[in-house]
Structures are given as C-alpha cells and as structure tokens.
C-alpha cells in the first residue's frame, strides 16, 4: 500500500518534472503544473519543495542555468542570447547567477575543458538535452525526525478576516481582528487561533498573497463587516508540531506534504492546510512559538478503492 502511494506520488511529480524540462522557455504557471500533478495549487508548492528538496522557482532557475552551461559548451550561441533564454535581462545578472552555481564566468566556462554541466542537488534531476527524465530521488531528510499524528476533526466553525498582501504583515490583520472580536467578548479561554495561507509566498507576488486569520466561534455568531464566517471541513488530518519562528513554517509544511505524505499510504484532500497557533507572538520569543500544522487527508477508503 505504502509502496503504491509512494509510486503514485512520484509518478505525478515525474510528469511535472518532464513537463518543466520540455517547456523551459514558457512561463510555467503554477496552476498548470499543479494540474499535471493532480494537486490543488495551494498544496503543490509544499509537495514539490518537500519531494525535490528545492522550491519550484529554484528548480526552474537551476535547470535554465544548466541548459545555459550545455549551450556554452556545445553550441556557438552568443553569451547574450544564452543569457536571455536563461531568463536574465542583462549579461551581468546572468554572469552573477552563473558564477554562483558553476564557480566560473560564462566565458571561462566556455573555454575550460571537461567541466560538469550539473549543479549538485539531492533529487538528481538535471537538464539533459533531448533525453526524457525517467526517475528522481524523493528527498527524505526529515522523515526520521518527524512526528506525525493522524487526527479526526469535526467541522470547525470560524470567524475570519481575509488578509491580502505580504505574509509578514498578517500580524496587523490579526491585531484588528482580535480587537473587534475581543471587545465583543468572543475571545474565551477555549478559543482556537487558526491561520490559512492560500498562496505560497515563494511563488505568488507579495501583494497578492491571501491569508485568513480565523478564530473558532459558536453557532450564534453572524458575519459582520469585515468579518466573515467559514467552516473548516472535518475529516482526517495529518498533524505535526512546528517549534520556532513563523518564517520557517514553510519548511515544516514541505516536510509534511513532500516527505511524509508520499510514504504514508495516504493522499491529500484539496481543501487547504491550516495552522493552529498555540501561543502568542505578543509575549513569546520567536524561538519558543509552537504551531500545529494540519494537512487534510482523503478518506482511507477512497484510496483503497483505486
């Protein structure tokens, strides 16, 4: 069963990797890649980063650089054109990125003998002209140290305020949201504080990132002004606890969705992940913050039916 799902998860991702290699000159939109992987866009980037050990943006950038290295060696294309096709507007920017990876300037690299065309990565996925990718290594660095529990949740009714803008500014939305709820006596001792990030800060432009600040409320609560109501779906969730600053939540999501999930025998449901904050950044050092991450799972029977 677990072998089957790991194969399934890897095959989906392999289709994406092949597509990327065949469309390196295209914009490679998140929605299209997520569709190929049969994943919701909000899950895709976590799964990708976790499985490949690098973010989608980095992966694409690296493959374009590796292709540039091939072309420097095996073609007579002018460096400026190679730079442009690698996605760099100026020769300087290209040179900097190239030197960063290959430890030589593009011209030095062209002259030198027997230089490798590949940049070291755990997945073993590299640009290879005309050859279709057959396999890759799914990263598993975090699997051993991860404690994942499966929880069954009932539906949760929450009041929420939508934040659209840079992720590091969600604190302001929380402040206002808490003030409006708090003065109404809606923040009790058993209130849960939940965050839902609908976009990936690494892919979506900062001003377009959508995030919902949510607080559990009773059945009597009605939407008012900027505050809406939504119900977080019940069902099975894979849960891990993240210790430390919120900036590193992405790494924990990537481990859970990209490393644990493929080996778990389970599959993701398309509803977004959410996080429950167990202490408050107002009176806690970032290093001592504790957050539970919830990834929604498809019911087991749906997987067995396949």
């Amino acid at each position: 069963m677990k072998d089957f799902t790991l194969r399934m998860h890897k095959e989906r991702m392999l289709r994406v990797l092949v597509y990327i290699q065949q469309h390196l000159d295209d914009p490679l939109r998140l929605e299209i890649l997520a569709g190929i992987a049969c994943l919701a866009p909000h899950h895709f980037h976590h799964v990708f980063t976790g499985m490949l050990g690098e973010s989608l943006a980095r992966h694409i950038r690296r493959l374009r650089l590796e292709r540039a290295a091939w072309r420097l060696k095996l073609s007579r294309m002018p460096v400026v054109q190679i730079a442009l096709e690698a996605g760099y507007d100026t020769h300087e920017a290209f040179s900097r990125a190239f030197r960063n990876g290959f430890k030589a300037s593009p011209t030095q690299f062209r002259r030198r003998h027997g230089t490798a065309y590949q940049l070291q990565v755990p997945s073993g996925v590299h640009y290879c002209d005309g050859v279709t990718l057959k396999d890759f290594r799914a990263t598993r660095t975090g699997v051993k140290t991860m404690t994942v529990t499966i929880k069954q949740l009932g539906p949760m009714r929450v009041a929420f305020m939508r934040h659209v803008g840079p992720y590091n500014e969600v604190g302001r939305t929380w402040d206002r949201f808490m003030m409006l709820l708090g003065k109404e006596g809606l923040l009790g001792g058993d209130t849960q504080f939940i965050g839902i990030c609908h976009d990936d800060p690494a892919v979506t432009p900062p001003d377009k990132i959508r995030y919902d600040a949510c607080v559990t409320v009773g059945a009597c609560f009605r939407p008012q002004g900027e505050i809406g109501v939504q119900v977080l779906a019940g069902g099975d969730y894979a849960v891990i606890t993240h210790f430390g600053p919120y900036e590193k939540l992405g790494e924990s999501y990537a481990k859970l969705l990209g490393q644990w999930l493929p080996r778990s025998g389970r599959d993701l449901r398309s509803t977004p992940c959410f996080e429950i904050y167990l202490n408050s950044p107002e009176n806690t050092d970032p290093a001592d913050l504790v957050t539970d991450l919830y990834a929604p799972l498809e019911p087991m029977q749906d997987i067995l039916r396949r």
Binding site: M178, G182, K183, G185, L187, G188, G189
Partner: peptide
Amino acid sequence: IGALYAVAFTIKMTRKF
C-alpha cells in the same frame, strides 16, 4: 485559566478599540 484569559483579552481589546 480559560476565564482568566477571557477577561484579560476582553479588557485589553475593549480599551484598544
């Protein structure tokens, strides 16, 4: 504990508002 936090939050947020 729940009651204590509820009162603490409500006082703070009412004043803040």
